[in-house]
Every structure is written in structure tokens, then in C-alpha cells.
Design a protein around this nucleic acid. Structure first.
Lengths: 402, 402
DNA sequence: GGACTTAATTTGAGTCGCGATTTAACCTGG
DNA sequence: CCAGGTTAAATCGCGACTCAAATTAAGTCC
């Protein structure tokens, strides 16, 4: 039912500022003429809008290129120093706070352990605030120049309209995280599921670049997915879309920690793979005391793990085939820490299994690849949220001018 | 990445015409003041735009309502006679052509059998043209006043940019249907998968009214789905999204006609249910010679069909749970001819099974209901495609004025 | 019949994007 | 060194747009 918003004459200018900014941001440096050609706007309007953007400090001229006989082109780019962004990665064991400039270069970091396993929300909120202060102090960036703070959290984020987080794995039930954070900061907050923000990082800077639709399949201890459709993260009615781990792959199959049976997560998550190896061989995998990650790494070198891993590829391929059939994406991107560890070993088997289980036509339109960014991209992805807003608003919501 | 289109000053007026038209179309009759409140536009602008719409014949005044002491409100509505729409339903056995006015009231119908099972594309194209001529002649509507022709077809429709149809069930491999139809008509064509156009009919006029996201699950001989997200049909990268029937519900399970094993369609489509009944009892269901539809109807009255039907509800519920987990829709709507036949019997079991297999949170946000329109809604849904375009363009693309 | 209410239109001002024109900044060739 | 050529960018005038305020229209009520 398309766009239901009214248009005022101001929206015109804001929209065109946004169109030009997105172009400059995604394609690097361009001339005014390039912008006119790329957007379809007249050269007059581009010139006019760009001069306004330069006056606002959002865009800067960046050298020139001589042409063959005429006035040289002036190159334009987004002013990386015009503002800053904060990305926060709330994990189950750590909180990471990272400060970026507009080119997404890291300017400062702070990193804290969480001993309560993330259950203690007040302590977590305190650490986020401490991290915020730390990155601002260390970099000397004044708070007024921060365009926003993106926070990636484990769990479903509902916007009602304030962000409320439901996180089973950390025992959160409707934690009003936005309100809690708001008590100690006035910066714009963007709270989002960590898997979705990682997916966005992968789309902007990783294996998803250039695609407008993709599904990022994340395999860690459990299994999740981030769906990108028409260039934007797909959230569904209450932001819990993409719960791929609990789709049924085997009716009445293995018990899953969600209480149901036969979930994909009960077969292909790190925990499930280790369990299945134990059942298969009767022994625990080596290095099991080094944690799940070490155990999975050890599994790859274990001689008798072959059948378990091959079978995992079959399950995973079937799960991916479901994604292909239902979402018809341009790409499937395999990520998550276990996905990165197991990926190279499993990928051929996964591709074969997906080809068997998916319909020919959508399978032919997609490719199955490994991710390019690691799990530490959550903070980066979280920082893209205020950036997305900034660009879409045409670089208004500008912090206090210098 | 949001809207990448430039804005010109003309888009403003067209956009606001569109906003007002959508309001009038969806909510029936409104006054100018209602429109101003609903859209946020100023009363001045609404008055201005509406007078233009009235001058163009798109909108008409429709009586007035006295207010308590002031000037009476004038009611406005879309002029149902301003133009007409054609919906074509291409099935495997029939072609139906239907003419509607803008209020979607049927003005004429034509209906032809297809003996080739739809394989003979040239014959089909001839019948569509014959139907077009017939409905126009019978109703006396001149072709210039038809805003467009929507065609719902069995198979995947790829827009490259001309619509090309891939239909396994009718043996079509890349049939350039748009080009073929274009040879004999200049009317705007909108070719779409029949399941998706039925889904759109259900969203506009059936069980989906008022929802902005839903999945319409269609059970016929096979199984399919139409996904609606953010108020628009979700198509994916190459328009084949929503192939729910071939998601895997049981690894290495029953063989499916697609060649894979364990597809949902191998358990819950009409064909599969009848097969499973035969295997269960060793006998064919009564009235099997009356076709699948009669056989399914007979099955419902058969004493020993209980276990097969109960088990079907379990499978169907698990498949629906996958949709809930992945798409997080506001509603699940159960349709298709077999879905309508079996629905009342299966629904309690389906709901219970979906509750067991879906995550608590997204399951709590959705409801599972029966559809309100029958399979004959394909033509209606196809006719909504030109209507959607007409409204989104603000009632421009107007046929020659009377 | 005059005061009051509410709906709708008109008016005047401020913005916007575009096409045409002008200015700016460079090259080349004699 | 300088006229002529070439391309990029800025400027100008025009038509179109929305909005707030003022005005007109069409009723009710005492």
C-alpha cells in the first residue's frame, strides 16, 4: 500500500539531500556532475543542494581531477569528521563500546567483562554508560557531536515505541532498556537485535555489499538469521522475524532447548553438533574444557567426526533451502562464530544439500557464501543504525555546529 | 537503504493526490476535513488537491452530513465509474476474465475451459483476448476507459522487465506472456502469480483487511503461500518468494513431486493427504472418481480418516510455525480450495501444533484464521494490481476524459 | 434576525526544482 | 601570451507547490 505520508515542500529538499548523501556515502567520491547523472536531478539542483551540504559541513570538497581541456571536476565526499557514531555490542559475556567517525573508522574502544552472564541489567547499563564516557574522553569528541548510539543486544527488541528487550538466553523478560539508558544520556538511542545489526554490517561492508536482498545465516551456540529485503533489514510485525533456528526440520525429532522438537537449532548449532558427536562416538570431543569454541575447533581435527559433520551439512543445507524458497534472496551469507569455524569444511556439502532441497529457480538466483566480518562486527553494525538515520534524513539532525 | 529516487516538485502534487486517494479508497467516504486530519496536510492543500481530483473526475462529492451548528460536511468518495479494471484468472483448467469498476463491483464476466491443461500458450492467449473483447462488448465499456488488465497465472512471474512466466505444473518454461498479450492489446498489463494475486484480494477485501503484514497459506492440490510485508506483497529477488510448499519438514521424508524428500507439500497438500489416507487404510477414499475436490470432501465424512487428518494438522501447524518464526506476521490466513474444505476440521489441531512449534513471542503476536474469499478471488486480486498502480500514481494515467 | 459554529476556499508568502544562461577554470595552438 | 575552445559549476527567472491566515459559505440556536 506504498507510502501513506503526506509531502510538504520541505520534504523535497530533505529527500534530495538524502539521495545525494546516500550516493556519496555508498560510492565514495563523486563530482557534482556524477551526482546529477546518478540521481537524475538537474545539475542546477545538485549544485544548489551540494552548496548547502557544504555550508552545513556534511560534505567537503576533496581535490579535483583535470578533465581533457575543460574546467576540472571537483570531487566531493562525506565529511568523515562532521560527526561521530557509537556502536555498543552487548554479548552474554562482554560489553564492547566503540566510537566511529562517519567513515566508520574506529576512534576509541572500551571493553568490559560481564560476570553475571548479562542477567544483571543494572550493572550492564552502568557499564554501557562507563564505556560511553570512556570512548568520548579518550578521543576528545564532545557528546554534542555524536549523532547517535546503536546498541546490539541478544534478544528480540520490540519498539512500543520505546525499545523493550526480550532475551531468553540472558533471562531478560521485557527489559525497558531504552528507558534505563535514557536516564543517563540524551544521545539518540538505536537499540536492535545483535544478529540483525551484524547482518547490517555484513550488508554494508562485508559479503553483502551491492546486494539489495540477502539472508545472513548466523551459527553460534544456537542458530539465527538476519533477513534483508529491498535494502533494509526485515523486522516483521514485532521485530522478531528471522527466527530461523526454531523452524522445524524434522517433525518429532531431537529435543531443542526451546521446548519443541526437531528444530534446526537442535541439529546444526555448535551445542547440537557437539552433542551429536558425543552420541555418535560415546566420547566427549577433545579440549572440551576450553569452552564450546575450542571444542568445535578440536572437532574439525578429530578423525571420526566426518559423518557427524557431513550430516550437519545436510541439515544446514536443508535449512538454507527453506530460506531460499521462502525469501528468494540474492545471497545467503553464512556467519556466526561456529559458522566461520565450520564453514570452509561444510560449504560444499551445504551447497549440495541446499541444491537438492530448494526449488531450481530460486536456487539458481542465489549464491551461498561465507561472511567476511567476524562476530566483533556487532558494534560496527550497531553504529550503522544512527548512520542510516543520518543519511535518510539528508544530514539534518545535525549536531551543534562547530 | 530507503528511497533512492530523486524528487521533483511535480512528485509532490502527485504524491499528495495519491495519499488522499488511498485514504478515500480504503476508508470509504470522508470529508475534506477528515482528509486533512488523517493525512496531516493543511486544509488549504486538501481543498486545492480535492478540487483538482473532482475536476479530473476521479473523485465525486456524495451528499453531506449536517454538523452541530456549522456548515455541513461534504462527503467525498472515489468515482466508481471513472474507469474500469480487468482481472484475468488463468487456471490449469479454465480462464476467467472479469471486468470491474473502481469500487470492484463486477460488471461483466467471461469464462472458458482449457482442454490442453493450459499447455497450449497460443490458445490461452487467444482466449484471454476473446474474453477481453467479450467483457468490454457486453458491458459497453470502451477500451480507453480500462485502467489496466491484471493477469494471475500459475507459476513464477519474472519481470525482466517484461513479464516472463515459469510454470512447472503447466509445463511453461520462460513463456514471454507479456509480449504475447501485447501483440493484440495496448492496455496496460500486470502479470502476477495467481497465489500472490489471491493473497492481495484477501488483504484488501478478505481476512487480511486492516493488517499490514500477513502470510496467506494456500492449500490446494499442492501448497503455496503469499507473503505480505509492510502492506505490499513480498516478491524477493526474482519474484519466487513464498515457495512454502517445498520447505523441508522431515529430512529424508516422503518423496515430493518436486524431486526432493520431506517437503511440506508431500504431507499436507490434497494429493498428499489422499495418498496418506490410502497408505493408512489400504483403500482409496470414496468418490475418488469425482476428482480431488470430491475425494477430499468425502474424506472428511469417512470414519477412519481421523488419524490421517489429525496428523495433517500436526504437519500443517509445524509448517505454519515456520512462517511465524521467519516472517513474524500479524496474521496467518489459511486458504486454497483444500484449505477451505479441511480448515474447519483441522484448525484446532493446527493452532495447537503451531503453538508447540513456534516461539512464544511471535506466536503471541499472530492469529491463525480461515480465509474469507474463495479460489475465484484470483481475478479480483489480479484486478487490484492496476488499481494499486492507479492509486499510487494519484489517479493520473487517467483514461481519455469523457 | 443577529450571534455563533464549523467547513471550505482564497490569498499572500516562502520554498523548491528546472531550463537557460552566465561565470569559472582549465587546455591548446599559433 | 592570448584568443578560441571545452567542460564544470553557479546564477537567474519561471512555474509549481504547501502553508498560515483571512475570508466566504452554510448551517444552528436563542
Amino acid at each position: 500500500m506504498i507510502d501513506r505520508r503526506r509531502r510538504t515542500v520541505r520534504d523535497l529538499r530533505r529527500g534530495n539531500r538524502s539521495v545525494l548523501l546516500w550516493q556519496l556515502y555508498l560510492r565514495g567520491t563523486l563530482t557534482r556532475n556524477d551526482l546529477a547523472r546518478a540521481t537524475g536531478l538537474s545539475a542546477a539542483t545538485v549544485s544548489n543542494v551540494v552548496s548547502q551540504l557544504i555550508r552545513d559541513g556534511v560534505v567537503v570538497e576533496d581535490g579535483s581531477v583535470e578533465s581533457d581541456g575543460g574546467r576540472p571536476h571537483v570531487l566531493l565526499r562525506v565529511n568523515a569528521g562532521h560527526g561521530h557514531l557509537v556502536g555498543v555490542d552487548v554479548g552474554e559475556t562482554r560489553v564492547r563500546v566503540e566510537l566511529f567517525d562517519l567513515s566508520m573508522a574506529t576512534k576509541a574502544k572500551a571493553d568490559y567483562g560481564l560476570d553475571s552472564g548479562g542477567r544483571d541489567v543494572e550493572a550492564l547499563v552502568g557499564l554501557i554508560h562507563a564505556g560511553l564516557r570512556a570512548v568520548l574522553d579518550n578521543s576528545g569528541v564532545p557528546a554534542e557531536r555524536v549523532l547517535g548510539v546503536g546498541v546490539g543486544v541478544p534478544g528480540v527488541v520490540e519498539h512500543t515505541p520505546e525499545a523493550v528487550v526480550h532475551g531468553q538466553t540472558v533471562g531478560w523478560d521485557a527489559v525497558p532498556l531504552e528507558r534505563l539508558l535514557r536516564e543517563d544520556t540524551t544521545l539518540p538511542l538505536f537499540i536492535e537485535n545483535g544478529a540483525k545489526s551484524m547482518g547490517q554490517a555484513e550488508m554494508w561492508f562485508g559479503a553483502g555489499r551491492g546486494a539489495s536482498s540477502a539472508v545472513i545465516a548466523l551459527i553460534g551456540s544456537g542458530v539465527g538469521a538476519s533477513v534483508v529485503a529491498n535494502g533494509a533489514t526485515y523486522r516483521g510485525a514485532s521485530s522478531s522475524a528471522g527466527e530461523w533456528g526454531h523452524t522445524t526440520i524434522q517433525i518429532d525429532g531431537r529435543a531443542c532447548r526451546c521446548g519443541a522438537r526437531g528444530c534446526l537449532e537442535a541439529y546444526v548449532g555448535a551445542e547440537a553438533v557437539l552433542d551429536r558427536y558425543r552420541e555418535h562416538t560415546g566420547t566427549a570431543p577433545t579440549a572440551a574444557d576450553g569452552g564450546e569454541e575450542a571444542a568445535v575447533a578440536a572437532l574439525l581435527d578429530t578423525a571420526d567426526a566426518g559423518p557427524v559433520l557431513d550430516r550437519t551439512a545436510v541439515y544446514l543445507g536443508a535449512g538454507i533451502a527453506d530460506l531460499i524458497n521462502l525469501f528468494n534472496p540474492q545471497r545467503i551469507i553464512l556467519g556466526g562464530w561456529a559458522g566461520m569455524l565450520l564453514g570452509p569444511r561444510l560449504l560444499p556439502g551445504v551447497r549440495a544439500s541446499a541444491a537438492r532441497h530448494a526449488l531450481r529457480h530460486p536456487f539458481g538466483q542465489t549464491s551461498i557464501e561465507l561472511c567476511q566480518l567476524g562476530p566483533e562486527a556487532v558494534a560496527l553494525g550497531a553504529a550503522t543504525l544512527p548512520m542510516e538515520r543520518f543519511l535518510s534524513q539528508g544530514g539534518t539532525a545535525v549536531p551543534a555546529a562547530p
